[in-house]
Simulated assay, not measured.
Amino acid sequence: MAFLSSRRRRVRLAPELDDQELGKLLKSLVATTRTGTIATTDLCVAQMSRVLEQDPGDWDRRTHRMDVLAGYLAGSHLPRAWATREPRSANALVLHAWTQVAQGRLQGHLEDPAGAVDSCLRAAELAPADPTPWVALLGVARLERREQSQVFGVWNEVLARDRWNREAYVNMLGYLSPGEGGSRLQVLDFVDSLRARMPANAPCAAIELTAQVHQYHAILDRGGVEALVARSHWSQLMAAQALDRAAHTWGQPGFLRHAKALADLNLLAYALMAAERRAEAGSVFEVIGGVVTAWPWRTGGDPVTEFDQMRQRATAGQ
């Protein structure tokens, strides 16, 4: 039907993914901050606090919401204002530190690393069971290129509270990468160690495929003949096996249940298209619907345009 096909074609960049409460909050923050009233900050703080206090103990959902909010508010005065007004709010302190990390990634450095560390440690004291202060601190340590003993110490604090915390593993993968002072061998050892003990549908299940996509991008970035034949990366044993494992399970209804499942499915669709496995990619695109993540699609240009073009290629003739 024309109506259904037009709905299928409609795509949007959605950092909140399928988290409806978070999506409503992001829209509300935009509308509220545009009012310019004296009470704007108070209203925004109340809205953020309400959402972050939901689902206590669901660390996966809490980490997702912190991560998205921090990226959304990078450069905003709101997190600092909230932490200043409520210095004993773990939510405020973690969001303030995490926003500093998000801004630091954009700038290449932290403006106040000591202040970010202090916010994380105070939040950890206020909420000892919560892994998110330690996830934020791991982001600080990564940006600061701290010694591995210190970084792994922080990472272990996260895992003691949330064994398969997705953002912790993403940070460690980045920290161990050649681009950040690690090596390809360290990445491989890290991924192998994880795969040996991780449940197949854990929140951090995409780390292995993420590592392969990073390697694929490194080949593309080298340019020349290597970039022209970069697709052959996906026929190599480790890359092919990682892609096979994901392709055979992730798209099954209910298999992935974590907060960033749609982000992982975007990654899978991207990798399948890079490997020219269009039929399998088409099935994944159907599961995704129109929810687009900035990474990895932005590596080809505008993420929404890239996603839509790849989806059309995958479903052509179906």
Rank of each mutant, 00 (worst) to 15 (best):
R9P: 04
A14K: 15
D18A: 13
E21C: 12
L22R: 08
L25S: 06
A31Y: 11
T32I: 11
C44V: 11
A46L: 11
S49F: 10
E53A: 15
D58M: 10
D67K: 12
Y72Q: 15
H77W: 14
H77S: 15
E86G: 08
P87E: 13
L93G: 08
V94A: 03
A102K: 03
R105I: 09
L106I: 11
Q107K: 13
P113S: 00
A114L: 12
L121Y: 01
R122P: 05
P133E: 06
W134V: 07
V135T: 06
R146D: 02
S149L: 07
F152D: 12
V158R: 03
R166P: 02
A168F: 00
V170H: 06
N171S: 09
G179W: 02
G179C: 01
S183L: 02
R184H: 14
V187N: 08
D189Q: 15
D189H: 14
F190V: 01
R195Y: 05
A196T: 09
N201F: 01
A202T: 04
I207S: 01
E208I: 00
V213A: 12
W234T: 02
W234F: 02
S235M: 12
A247G: 01
H248Q: 14
T249I: 04
F255W: 02
F255L: 02
L256P: 02
H258D: 08
K260E: 15
L265A: 03
L268M: 03
Y270S: 05
A274C: 13
A274S: 14
A279S: 15
E280K: 14
S283K: 15
S283P: 10
E286T: 15
V292H: 05
T293D: 15
W295V: 05
W297S: 09
W297E: 09
G300N: 13
D302I: 06
P303C: 04
A314I: 07
G317P: 13
